[in-house]
Measured scan of single mutants.
Amino acid sequence: IDVRFTVNGLDVTVRVRTEEIAERVKELAKNGVDWREIQRIAEELNK
């Protein structure tokens, strides 16, 4: 599942395995978490 969001004007796409992880990623993006941090968290959750 590809999750797309915009952080500080940057369009970011993170690929995740499940809808649940996708929701977590969207939540982080909404809360203004840095995209590199979101990427790292997504990689952890995908394991």
Results as ranks from 00 to 15, higher is better:
residue 19 E to A: 11
residue 39 Q to F: 12
residue 6 T to P: 13
residue 6 T to W: 05
residue 31 N to C: 10
residue 15 R to P: 05
residue 14 V to G: 00
residue 13 T to W: 02
residue 15 R to W: 07
residue 47 K to L: 14
residue 8 N to G: 13
residue 15 R to A: 08
residue 44 E to H: 13
residue 32 G to N: 11
residue 18 T to C: 04
residue 10 L to A: 10
residue 10 L to W: 06
residue 30 K to N: 12
residue 7 V to D: 15
residue 7 V to K: 07
residue 33 V to S: 07
residue 13 T to C: 07
residue 28 L to H: 05
residue 18 T to E: 02
residue 8 N to W: 00
residue 15 R to L: 05
residue 3 V to C: 06
residue 29 A to M: 11
residue 22 A to Q: 04
residue 11 D to S: 09
residue 29 A to F: 15
residue 2 D to K: 07
residue 33 V to G: 05
residue 44 E to W: 04
residue 27 E to N: 11
residue 38 I to G: 00
residue 21 I to W: 02
residue 3 V to R: 01
residue 39 Q to N: 09
residue 40 R to W: 09
residue 13 T to I: 14
residue 19 E to L: 11
residue 33 V to T: 12
residue 45 L to Y: 07
residue 39 Q to Y: 09
residue 17 R to A: 15
residue 47 K to G: 11
residue 22 A to R: 05
residue 28 L to D: 02
residue 32 G to E: 09
residue 23 E to K: 12
residue 31 N to D: 14
residue 10 L to M: 13
residue 10 L to S: 10
residue 23 E to H: 14
residue 13 T to K: 08
residue 37 E to A: 04
residue 38 I to L: 08
residue 17 R to K: 15
residue 37 E to L: 05
residue 21 I to V: 07
residue 8 N to C: 08
residue 46 N to H: 05
residue 8 N to S: 08
residue 18 T to F: 03
residue 9 G to W: 01
residue 26 K to E: 07
residue 7 V to W: 06
residue 25 V to S: 00
residue 30 K to G: 09
residue 19 E to V: 14
residue 34 D to C: 07
residue 29 A to H: 12
residue 41 I to H: 06
residue 35 W to Q: 07
residue 19 E to Q: 12
residue 25 V to Y: 00
residue 21 I to L: 06
residue 47 K to W: 09
residue 36 R to H: 15
residue 23 E to Q: 14
residue 5 F to T: 09
residue 35 W to E: 06
residue 25 V to F: 01
residue 21 I to N: 04
residue 1 I to G: 02
residue 30 K to S: 12
residue 27 E to W: 04
residue 28 L to M: 12
residue 13 T to F: 04
residue 38 I to Q: 00
residue 39 Q to A: 12
residue 33 V to H: 09
residue 30 K to I: 11
residue 25 V to R: 00
residue 14 V to I: 15
residue 47 K to I: 14
residue 21 I to Y: 04
residue 25 V to E: 00
residue 45 L to F: 07
residue 3 V to H: 02
residue 26 K to D: 03
residue 19 E to C: 10
residue 45 L to D: 04
residue 8 N to P: 03
residue 35 W to N: 03
residue 7 V to M: 06
residue 12 V to Y: 13
residue 1 I to T: 04
residue 34 D to I: 04
residue 4 R to A: 12
residue 3 V to L: 13
residue 36 R to K: 14
residue 23 E to N: 11
residue 3 V to T: 02
residue 22 A to D: 00
residue 34 D to K: 06
residue 12 V to K: 05
residue 8 N to M: 06
residue 40 R to F: 09
residue 26 K to F: 05
residue 40 R to H: 10
residue 22 A to L: 05
residue 5 F to I: 15
residue 28 L to V: 03
residue 41 I to D: 01
residue 28 L to G: 01
residue 23 E to A: 12
residue 3 V to P: 02
residue 16 V to W: 00
residue 45 L to T: 02
residue 27 E to C: 06
residue 1 I to E: 03
residue 40 R to E: 10
residue 18 T to I: 02
residue 18 T to R: 02
residue 21 I to C: 03
residue 30 K to H: 11
residue 37 E to W: 03
residue 44 E to A: 11
residue 14 V to M: 10
residue 1 I to L: 09
residue 44 E to L: 11
residue 40 R to Q: 12
residue 20 E to W: 07
residue 40 R to M: 13
residue 11 D to W: 08
residue 11 D to C: 10
residue 7 V to E: 15
residue 43 E to M: 08
residue 4 R to Q: 14
residue 13 T to A: 07
residue 12 V to G: 02
residue 3 V to F: 03
residue 41 I to W: 07
residue 44 E to M: 09
residue 16 V to G: 01
residue 28 L to E: 03
residue 19 E to M: 14
residue 40 R to D: 07
residue 17 R to G: 09
residue 2 D to I: 07
residue 43 E to V: 09
residue 40 R to N: 10
residue 3 V to D: 02
residue 7 V to N: 10
residue 32 G to D: 08
residue 33 V to C: 08
residue 15 R to N: 15
residue 18 T to H: 03
residue 14 V to Y: 01
residue 27 E to H: 10
residue 46 N to V: 03
residue 24 R to N: 07
residue 23 E to V: 14
residue 12 V to D: 01
residue 25 V to C: 06
residue 34 D to R: 06
residue 27 E to T: 09
residue 21 I to K: 01
residue 33 V to Y: 09
residue 8 N to T: 04
residue 37 E to F: 02
residue 47 K to Q: 14
residue 9 G to K: 01
residue 25 V to P: 00
residue 18 T to M: 02
residue 46 N to F: 03
residue 45 L to R: 02
residue 16 V to C: 09
residue 43 E to R: 06
residue 26 K to N: 08
residue 9 G to Y: 02
residue 32 G to P: 02
residue 8 N to Q: 10
residue 14 V to S: 00
residue 12 V to P: 00
residue 21 I to Q: 10
residue 41 I to R: 05
residue 12 V to C: 06
residue 42 A to V: 13
residue 11 D to M: 12
residue 5 F to Q: 05
residue 30 K to V: 11
residue 12 V to F: 13
residue 23 E to I: 13
residue 1 I to M: 09
residue 34 D to H: 09
residue 17 R to V: 14
residue 47 K to A: 15
residue 47 K to D: 14
residue 7 V to P: 04
residue 8 N to E: 12
residue 2 D to R: 03
residue 16 V to P: 00
residue 45 L to N: 03
residue 23 E to F: 08
residue 47 K to M: 14
residue 44 E to V: 09
residue 37 E to T: 09
residue 20 E to Q: 13
residue 34 D to Y: 05
residue 22 A to C: 04
residue 26 K to A: 11
residue 38 I to N: 00
residue 46 N to C: 03
residue 45 L to Q: 05
residue 38 I to R: 00
residue 47 K to C: 11
residue 24 R to W: 09
residue 40 R to C: 09
residue 23 E to T: 13
residue 43 E to K: 10
residue 43 E to N: 11
residue 12 V to W: 06
residue 17 R to F: 10
residue 42 A to L: 10
residue 4 R to G: 11
residue 36 R to L: 15
residue 20 E to P: 06
residue 16 V to Q: 00
residue 1 I to S: 04
residue 15 R to D: 03
residue 24 R to S: 08
residue 24 R to H: 12
residue 43 E to Q: 10
residue 32 G to Y: 05
residue 3 V to G: 01
residue 34 D to E: 11
residue 22 A to T: 01
residue 17 R to Q: 13
residue 42 A to I: 12
residue 32 G to Q: 09
residue 4 R to N: 15
residue 22 A to G: 10
residue 46 N to M: 04
residue 20 E to L: 09
residue 36 R to S: 14
residue 1 I to C: 05
residue 44 E to C: 14
residue 4 R to K: 15
residue 36 R to M: 15
residue 38 I to H: 00
residue 42 A to C: 06
residue 31 N to K: 13
residue 5 F to D: 03
residue 14 V to N: 00
residue 39 Q to R: 10
residue 27 E to I: 09
residue 27 E to F: 04
residue 30 K to Q: 13
residue 39 Q to I: 15
residue 11 D to F: 07
residue 27 E to R: 08
residue 16 V to Y: 00
residue 25 V to W: 00
residue 20 E to I: 09
residue 36 R to W: 13
residue 28 L to P: 00
residue 6 T to L: 13
residue 14 V to H: 01
residue 20 E to K: 12
residue 31 N to Q: 15
residue 44 E to G: 09
residue 12 V to L: 11
residue 12 V to N: 02
residue 41 I to K: 04
residue 37 E to I: 08
residue 36 R to C: 14
residue 4 R to W: 12
residue 39 Q to P: 02
residue 2 D to M: 06
residue 28 L to N: 01
residue 19 E to K: 10
residue 34 D to N: 09
